[in-house]
C-alpha cells in the first residue's frame, strides 16, 4: 500500500503532464525518497494508481539507474568512473574506498551505513576526481578528503 503521503505527493504531479503515465518516473522517485528503494509491491501499487501494467512500469523502473530496485544503505556513494576522473586518479580513489569500506562496487556494508556504486560522468571534470555522497557533490578528491567525508556520514 502506498502511504497517504506518497499518494498525495504523486497526485500533486498530475497537473504537470497531460498523461498519468508521464508521472511514473517521478512517482518511483517519491516512493524511493520515503523508503530508500522501490520494492515489488510499490511497483504494483504505483502502476495501479497510474493505470499502467505492473510489468511495463517495472521495465521502466529497471531502465533508469537512479531507481533502486534493491535496498541500499543509509548513504549512497557514487564514484565517477568516466574518462576525466579516470585520468585524474579514479582507480586510486576506488581502491581507497574499497579498503576503507571493506566492500566492492555494487555492495552495501554489513551495518547498512554505505552502498558503494560506480557512476558515469558527474559533469565536474575540471575538479576531477569527483564523487557524490547522497545528494552532494565532492570534488578534487584525495584519500584524506574521502576519509573526512566518510567520517561525517553516520
Amino acid at each position: 500500500m502506498l502511504s497517504p503521503e506518497e499518494k498525495k505527493e504523486i497526485e500533486a504531479e498530475f497537473p504537470l503532464y497531460p498523461t498519468k503515465q508521464a508521472v511514473c518516473i517521478d512517482a518511483l522517485k517519491i516512493v524511493q525518497r520515503h523508503r530508500g528503494w522501490v520494492p515489488d509491491e510499490a511497483v504494483r501499487d504505483v502502476a495501479a494508481l497510474l493505470d499502467m501494467a505492473p510489468d511495463e512500469l517495472d521495465g521502466i523502473a529497471t531502465f533508469y539507474n537512479r531507481i533502486f530496485r534493491r535496498p541500499v544503505g543509509r548513504h549512497v556513494i557514487l564514484l565517477c568512473d568516466s574518462v576525466s576522473c579516470w585520468i585524474m586518479g579514479y582507480e586510486r580513489m576506488r581502491a581507497h574506498l574499497t579498503e576503507r569500506l571493506g566492500i566492492g562496487l555494487g555492495q552495501t556494508t554489513a551495518d547498512h551505513r554505505f552502498t558503494f556504486l560506480p557512476n558515469v560522468c558527474l559533469g565536474a571534470c575540471d575538479r576531477a576526481p569527483v564523487m557524490m555522497m547522497d545528494e552532494d557533490l565532492h570534488a578534487d578528491l584525495t584519500k584524506e578528503r574521502i576519509d573526512a567525508i566518510l567520517e561525517e556520514c553516520q
Binding site: 504537470l16 503532464y17 498523461t19 503515465q21 508521464a22 508521472v23 511514473c24 518516473i25 517521478d26 518511483l28 522517485k29 521495465g59 521502466i60 531502465f63 533508469y64 539507474n65 537512479r66 531507481i67 558515469v120
Partner: peptide, 26 residues
C-alpha cells in the same frame, strides 16, 4: 516545468528524451 531525470546517457538523445518525459523507457 522542471522535470528531473532518473539517469541514463541515452536521455540526451532528443527523441529518447521525449520518451523519458512521457514516462517510458528512453
Amino acid at each position: 516545468i522542471v522535470h528531473v531525470s532518473a539517469g541514463r546517457y541515452i536521455c540526451g538523445e532528443e527523441t529518447a528524451l521525449l520518451n523519458a518525459l512521457e514516462g517510458k523507457r528512453a
